[in-house]
Structures are given as structure tokens and as C-alpha cells.
């Protein structure tokens, strides 16, 4: 969240509500869970860290008193963030370990776990796909939903591979 808010500020000094609007546009339906207060909490933290500063808003600029801007340290941090290539959660490790542990301890049938997980992912896929179809063509938020759909599709394919592998293994319950 901190890096995202900093990067959004790189465009120009902004009010908190402007940052929130830009974030909402970019995230579309996936940003609905975003709490209005989160932006301000983040901005306060960034200010304490010396990455943003603020000036009082001019006359007639509405109820938001502060216009936030990046400090030189903040600009440096944005530049660093843009070059980072870390990728969150490239492997479905948790579920893999769940299957392995369940089979080893004979706690549950791995195939039943795969079935339950598949039902959940299909529901998520249905929701993501509906949201994607509802976006107007060329929508930035639609692109994010497409990413979600493609990842869920890949995860479902992997569940098929899990089903096949655990069906042929001898250590099913």
C-alpha cells in the first residue's frame, strides 16, 4: 500500500481523496473493499518516514486541508519500487502442503480436498468473469480482472494435475 500511494503521488501533488479516486479507477470492483481511511493512515505513515510532505490547501479547494507531495526520498523510493521484480505467490504452496500433510497423516482424502478447492475456485472464477464482462471495453480495471481470471484458470488446471497425481498415488486414505 505504501509503495502504491507513493507512486500515485508521483504524477502531481494531490489531496488524499484524489489518490483514493485514482486507486478506485485502477482497481475497479476489486477496489471496493478499500477503506476510505486507509489512504490517510498510509499518508501519515509516509509522512513520518520522511517520504511525503504536505502543504495547506489554497482557498476554495474544498474540505480536504492538505495537499501531499513526494519528498526527494519519496521520489527515490518510487524509482526503486518500479525496478523491483518480486512476484507475490508464484506457487500454490499452501494448498500443496495441505494435500501432502492430509495424505501423510491420513487426515483427509486429497481428492476430496481438491474437489472442495475446485468448487471454491470455480465460484471465484465466475465472479471475476462476470465483473470482467461488465467492464466497458478498454477499461484499466478490466485488465486487472482479466489477470485474476487467467490466474484462476491456471490454478484450476493445476488442481486437475493434483487430482490426477493423487489418484494414482497409493497413499490415499
Amino acid at each position: 500500500m505504501q509503495d502504491v500511494v507513493l507512486a500515485l503521488l508521483a504524477k502531481e501533488p494531490s489531496h488524499g481523496y484524489q489518490l483514493r479516486a485514482r486507486l478506485r479507477d485502477a482497481l475497479g470492483p476489486l477496489g471496493e473493499a478499500l477503506n476510505d481511511g486507509q489512504i490517510y493512515v498510509t499518508l501519515t505513515r509516509l509522512e513520518k518516514a520522511g517520504l511525503v510532505t504536505w502543504e495547506p490547501a489554497g482557498e476554495g479547494e474544498g474540505r480536504d486541508r492538505k495537499v501531499y507531495a513526494l519528498t526527494p526520498a519519496g521520489q527515490h523510493r518510487v524509482a526503486e519500487w518500479l525496478t523491483e521484480v518480486a512476484w507475490p505467490r508464484p506457487a500454490p504452496t499452501d494448498f500443496h502442503l495441505k494435500l501432502t500433510a492430509a495424505a501423510a497423516a491420513r487426515l483427509a482424502d486429497p481428492i476430496a480436498l481438491v474437489d472442495a478447492q475446485r468448487r471454491e475456485l470455480l465460484r471465484l472464477l465466475r465472479d471475476a468473469q462476470r465483473a470482467a464482462l461488465a467492464e466497458p471495453p478498454g477499461s484499466v480495471a478490466g485488465l486487472l480482472l482479466e489477470g485474476q481470471v487467467l490466474r484462476l484458470e491456471a490454478d484450476l488446471k493445476w488442481l486437475d494435475a493434483c487430482e490426477q497425481a493423487w489418484t494414482t498415488r497409493g497413499d490415499r486414505k
Binding site: D115, R118, R119, L122, R123, L125, R126, Q129, V149, L152, E153, L156, K157
Partner: peptide, 23 residues
């Protein structure tokens, strides 16, 4: 194709000729 299946009201899983699960 999970994407096509996700447009359905119900998804039936088939294995070895039998319907074994329903979403």
C-alpha cells in the same frame, strides 16, 4: 475450459464415466 464452465448454473465433474461432484 473453466471459463466457459463458469458461465453455467451448475458444473458437474465427471470421472471414469460417472458424475462425482457438483458445483
Amino acid at each position: 475450459d473453466a471459463r466457459i464452465a463458469a458461465t453455467a448454473d451448475r458444473i458437474l465433474s465427471m470421472r471414469d464415466g460417472a458424475l462425482v461432484d457438483q458445483t
